[in-house]
Design a protein around this nucleic acid. Sequence first.
DNA 1: TTACGATATTAGAATGATTATAATTCTAAT
DNA 2: ATTAGAATTATAATCATTCTAATATCGTAA
Lengths: 136, 136
Amino acid sequence: MIRNTVDLLKDHGINPSSQRVRIYDYLATSEDHPTVDDIYAHLQREGHLFSRATVYNTVKLFLKKGLIRTVRVEEKEMRFDAAPGFHAHFKCGNCGAILDIETERPRLKGHPDYEVHETSLVFEGLCPDCLEKEAD
Amino acid sequence: MIRNTVDLLKDHGINPSSQRVRIYDYLATSEDHPTVDDIYAHLQREGHLFSRATVYNTVKLFLKKGLIRTVRVEEKEMRFDAAPGFHAHFKCGNCGAILDIETERPRLKGHPDYEVHETSLVFEGLCPDCLEKEAD
DNA sequence: TTACGATATTAGAATGATTATAATTCTAAT
DNA sequence: ATTAGAATTATAATCATTCTAATATCGTAA
């Protein structure tokens, strides 16, 4: 079943303005966990030039409504992820790529008195491409 | 077996200046994953007043030498952890406490072509104290 | 002890991501 | 068309971190 972005936003209680739809679409289709500036630059390139502030406002709104998540790799800029379902992230320390990794969600075993809302699992190391190059 | 901080730093190739020893001791004994400013404020209070820059330089050195790790909860300031061995972190979204959680290190199964150097596991939710208060 | 070179520390300026502010524009309902 | 509320915007402000260049400290050799 295909849902368009307008309906998706509405279902999350978000007024689907054209900027919001464009920002969501970019987040949903890009593979590389864009930063605010990536989003801003992309929409500028497309000719929809507007303000960085709108990008900040919008991603904050999406986060609050649970539509996207932040990617907690240790970088100074925030990165975002609209991919559904739990997955880990792998950051290559050499080329900087940030990849989604299918993994089951780790559970907080032995601590029934904690209520977990969010789980973040990040691996850091060397990706296959960089390992291969290093072998030369 | 007890090792003093001076020897520990030396063993990691770090010249154990008095500032470095004090910063390490504070990191190692504090339970709350201090920020740079926490460290700075603590040493000011103790009467060892010096520069924030030294704290930044020192934690960066400790990180490089593998003596401490960053805590990747989503906050604007960096937090540090000198506790040995892998453990997860739990951040309470209500009171802000950041707690160590004993857990086994998640493995990157099914991806033998990746080389993992570091693993970070963070849970976010409500801690027992806040859940109890909420029940009232 | 004194001088020297290397390293560590420091204050303050610069940077850069994010947030706040306040004005303008858009939208939908009357 | 008017109006109210929300969304967008440019700009300024904030604040953690990094950079820079000057000073202090330490160990060692003369």
